[in-house]
């Protein structure tokens, strides 16, 4: 039963990921990405990480993708319809992609010979609870946690400063208007 669920979820995830790349309209891309992220969240549950699945839905679908949709709707997306793909870099890009895909798949298929880790998955004896996770996060990983919060604060301030209208331009405009 688990395998069927996994195949269903990963199939939908791959199809919607392809839609992200292929879609003409950026809004459609964003919605396909939302679908893909929800499937990935379900796969996290299969992987025994329900807390991560909830975080994924909250942060990615709830915050990041809504931010994307805001920006898309602030901009004019209709003129984008004619040219989806790069013209100059298409051939080198495709070559790089094919090489990357071949390399990754070959390494993946051969890695069972190199490492012993890649055997069949362990049977879940007892799922680690959210309590274990939080204990580990707030004891052993307290410093990275604090650093991550500082990074988020810096990103917040940086985004506000970047997106703020230019002060010089804003200060010039009323003066020019007054002179005219």
């Amino acid at each position: 039963m688990e395998r069927e669920f996994f195949l269903l979820l990963s199939g939908v995830a791959i199809i919607s990921a392809l839609l992200v790349i292929v879609a003409r309209n950026p809004v459609h891309s964003a919605l396909a990405l939302v679908a893909c992220l929800v499937q990935v969240a379900a796969i996290y549950i299969l992987l025994g990480a329900p807390f991560l699945a909830v975080i994924q839905i909250f942060v990615y679908v709830g915050a990041v993708m809504v931010l994307f949709l805001f920006v898309i709707m602030m901009l004019d997306v209709r003129k984008e319809a004619k040219t989806r793909y790069l013209k100059k870099a298409a051939w080198p890009g495709l070559v790089v992609l094919v090489v990357l895909a071949a390399e990754l798949f070959v390494l993946l298929m051969q890695s069972a010979k190199i490492h012993t880790v890649m055997g069949p998955g362990l049977a879940i004896t007892e799922q680690p609870s959210v309590e274990d996770l939080s204990l580990l996060l707030f004891q052993d990983f307290l410093l990275p946690f604090e650093v991550a919060s500082v990074i988020l604060l810096v990103a917040l301030i940086g985004a506000v400063i970047l997106a703020r209208p230019d002060e010089a331009v804003a200060a010039d405009k009323p003066q020019n208007g007054g002179r005219r």
Partner: peptide
């Protein structure tokens, strides 16, 4: 990343 033109995508 390699093929699309739109920065958002």
């Amino acid at each position: 990343v390699l093929l699309r033109r739109n920065v958002l995508i």
